[in-house]
């Protein structure tokens, strides 16, 4: 146990100054549902906590058919789950946000924190990858963008430099006949961490798939964008055969480990099962639009 200082900046500019001053000893605190546990366990030992929840730029949540979705990094998951516009346009993202923890945890935890924690098993990350979400990252040097699938570099580590803050995600507005879906497997019904998580978004023209993105969680050191599996669907009818082919291609890039949450063999099996399931649901949703 060591002394920490806590700061609650009221602007992004202030937060960036605090973070720059803290250097390696600083860490952004969002919902704290991962960070505080890691601090108690001695896994992370920051000395300055800079609270993201008080920064207005990180609390943005807006949608327009023109701009798409702007999702602030510190928006708590309950706002996503309870937002009718998000439920309509991004049901897969809402599913992912709704699966994290209990009601109490959802009141605290954030999509930005879920990504910055760097866990390969984060539920919202495959959903964001499926939607082609882009991260807006600010630092004293300006703003840069990073695709969600490029954000995590290894378990617990991200592309963020010590003086950078993840500000928001931007997600394109879904074209007509587009829908997404996220499913994970856990041994219990709630309160658990994904053994495997798969997100998918598809766009249909009649029965033909014109765009598809598949994101995988908990099957490699980082969340994955299943590029080939996604590409294999484009230009084809979204039938069982196409879905099975995509699921096999998704399995090919999975490099799971064996741990207390599942064996590598079982995880590989689940990548196939869940990829098929989310594609079917996403396709059904897209047809209904």
């Amino acid at each position: 146990m060591h002394a920490i200082t806590y700061e609650a900046p009221k602007s992004l500019e202030h937060a960036l100054r605090l973070l720059a001053a803290a250097g390696e000893k600083g860490r952004v605190l969002a919902g704290g549902t991962d960070l505080l546990i890691q601090m108690r366990a001695g896994v992370r030992t920051p000395e300055r906590l800079i609270d993201a929840k008080t920064i207005p730029e990180l609390q943005v949540l807006s949608f327009s058919p023109h701009e798409g979705l702007r999702l602030g990094a510190a928006v708590p998951c309950y706002r996503i789950v309870e937002d009718p516009v998000l439920c309509q346009h991004y049901p897969g993202l809402v599913e992912a946000a709704g699966l994290i923890g209990s009601v109490q945890i959802k009141n605290r935890c954030t999509v930005g924190g879920n990504l910055c924690n760097g866990s390969p098993a984060a539920d919202t990350t495959p959903a964001l990858i499926a939607l082609g979400a882009v991260c807006y990252v600010a630092s004293p040097r300006g703003t840069r963008t990073v695709a969600v699938e490029d954000f995590v570099v290894s378990p617990g580590r991200t592309v963020l430099q010590p003086d950078e803050v993840l500000v928001e995600f931007r997600i394109p507005a879904p074209p007509p006949h587009t829908a997404d879906c996220y499913q994970r497997f856990i041994p219990r019904n709630e309160m658990d961490i994904a053994v495997v998580g798969v997100g998918a978004a598809v766009t249909l023209d009649g029965e033909v798939c014109t765009a598809a993105r598949i994101g995988l969680g908990a099957v490699a050191p980082t969340p994955l964008f299943a590029r080939e599996a996604s590409a294999s669907l484009v230009g084809k009818p979204l039938d069982d055969e196409a879905i099975a082919t995509a699921a096999e291609l998704a399995q090919k890039i999975a490099r799971p480990i064996t741990d207390m949450r599942g064996t590598a063999e079982y995880r590989l099996h689940l990548v196939g099962v869940l990829t098929r399931r989310v594609l079917k649901v996403a396709a059904e949703r897209a047809r209904a639009r």
Binding site: P187, R188, N189, E190, M191, D192, I193, D259, M260, R261
Partner: peptide, 16 residues
């Protein structure tokens, strides 16, 4: 021992 908490030592919850 790798599952030293109730997250990974899975007792049933009321939802199970």
């Amino acid at each position: 021992m790798r599952n030293t908490g109730f997250l990974d030592y899975r007792i049933p919850t009321c939802l199970d």
